[in-house]
Write a protein that binds this DNA or RNA. Structure first.
Lengths: 239, 239
DNA sequence: GGATCGCTTCGCTTGGGAGCGAAGCATCGG
DNA sequence: CCGATGCTTCGCTCCCAAGCGAAGCGATCC
């Protein structure tokens, strides 16, 4: 356990892994830039992560594309970030427009996070289309219909249960749950397909298109052009 | 993220955290022994873990009892161990009777792991009393009845869904899923209450009592006095 | 085929932190 | 009170590994 944690425990490697949490594959040079270290240093780090099977690599011409070796690694990183967000003492950190974009919406390996991800999860729970606990979640009959309207046919999946499993993932900026698991991944993919959201270059942040604002408002009653409600205001609105 | 991972990444601290994954609280001296370091070294480590809020402490007389700060930390450690078990290259490790006991059955924070934990999960899934996916799981009507017979009244819980959520947890010795989440915790607690299993001193291993062997056979068709079936033998038996 | 680019290997320096012994500070027993 | 126990703080040593510059190797472009 110590070896794996130590690999993640180095700042440069943590930056690399955080970048790869995007789900996409990056070249060694891109990752060196993201980690803010020189090429030789990054190369050594990538070799270590590769040897420990945390990463996988594909050679393509003179580029080497690195990616996370498995969803298991992504989950581990998620859980570490969740602990880091909740358990570490709060600390000053400067804001930038780049940070703002990440706060609004970003990918978390294969699903959506940030105010967008949390907002969707909140809406689904508030309308009883999804039931979430700390451990897991399921889609109600109402939810199956909603997802069907969005073009996600849950009944078509060959699973032992007609109800779709999903998984809560602790959002490290919002400090609340968003939707992960198979359902979260399908929803994120569908949003990309519908061009409701688009990836930003060199960042895990996603941009919401005008079509997306329309879609999210219609489907989930979400309007992310407004600043996020505080926890207190949210409770008052619910009451 | 790097800071939290670095804390877990030190061998001595990893030993401490692994010991505390038991779920119980231990004194500083006990943890120093478990980590195989001197008292001053352990004290420094505990201070760091405490400052990062990974641990909590209770002063009791001249003893200081340390425990994991939250289930979130336990989950993070589980996920790191899961990656360590699956993704790291296999390596030689000597066996001991102490290891054997851990392989047979142990606690994993608040639920059961090892051959016992995996065996229970396998039996529940094979009999369609629980449905498990990679992300989550649910109890079937059949399962609700079984748990009722064991004295676990799932219907009494005030949850949004009548079905109990549970969570698969990758067993780092068996490399297969066992039952975690609220259901796993309730089941483990009930097994302790029924005196089917007992904690061993200074170890996360649990001992199965004669009553336990009887109970596990009746409830799950489990006989752990025999060596575990290989994956191949298990498939052949199922066919 | 010479220049360029992407990435790695080699050799070296440096800093952070893990570890322990000794001493200091509480708390408990008698 | 006085010694014993549990734990921490202080001061120190030592080692590991992160980092970079220079050089090497392979693929690509024109």
């Amino acid at each position: 356990m110590a070896e794996v944690a130590a690999l993640v425990g180095d700042p440069a490697r943590a930056n690399i892994l955080d970048t790869l949490l995007d789900g996409r594959a990056f070249t060694a040079t891109e990752l060196a830039f993201a980690a803010r270290v020189g090429a030789p240093t990054a190369s050594a780090h990538l070799a270590k992560l590769l040897e420990a099977r945390l990463l996988a690599v594909v050679k393509q011409g003179r580029h080497r594309y690195y990616r996370l070796a498995s969803p298991l690694v992504a989950r581990m990183l998620e859980s570490i970030m969740a602990v880091a967000a909740i358990e570490m003492p709060p600390r000053y950190r400067p804001r930038s427009s780049r940070d703002e974009a990440l706060l609004l919406g970003r990918t978390c390996y294969d699903h959506l996070a940030g105010r967008l991800g949390v907002g969707i999860a909140d809406a689904l729970v508030a309308r009883s289309q999804v039931v979430l606990s700390d451990d897991a979640g399921e889609v109600t009959a109402d939810g199956v219909k909603l997802f069907g309207d969005l073009g996600i046919d849950l009944a078509a999946e060959k699973r032992p249960s007609p109800r779709r499993f999903c998984r809560p993932c602790l959002d490290f900026t919002e400090r609340r749950f968003h939707l992960a698991g198979a359902l979260g991944a399908m929803l994120a993919r569908r949003c990309f397909d519908l061009r409701w959201i688009e990836r930003r270059r060199d960042s895990r942040a996603v941009a919401i298109t005008p079509m997306g604002h329309e879609g999210f408002r219609n489907a989930f009653g979400l309007d992310l052009r407004q600043p996020p409600a505080t926890e207190r205001a949210r409770r008052e609105a619910a009451a």
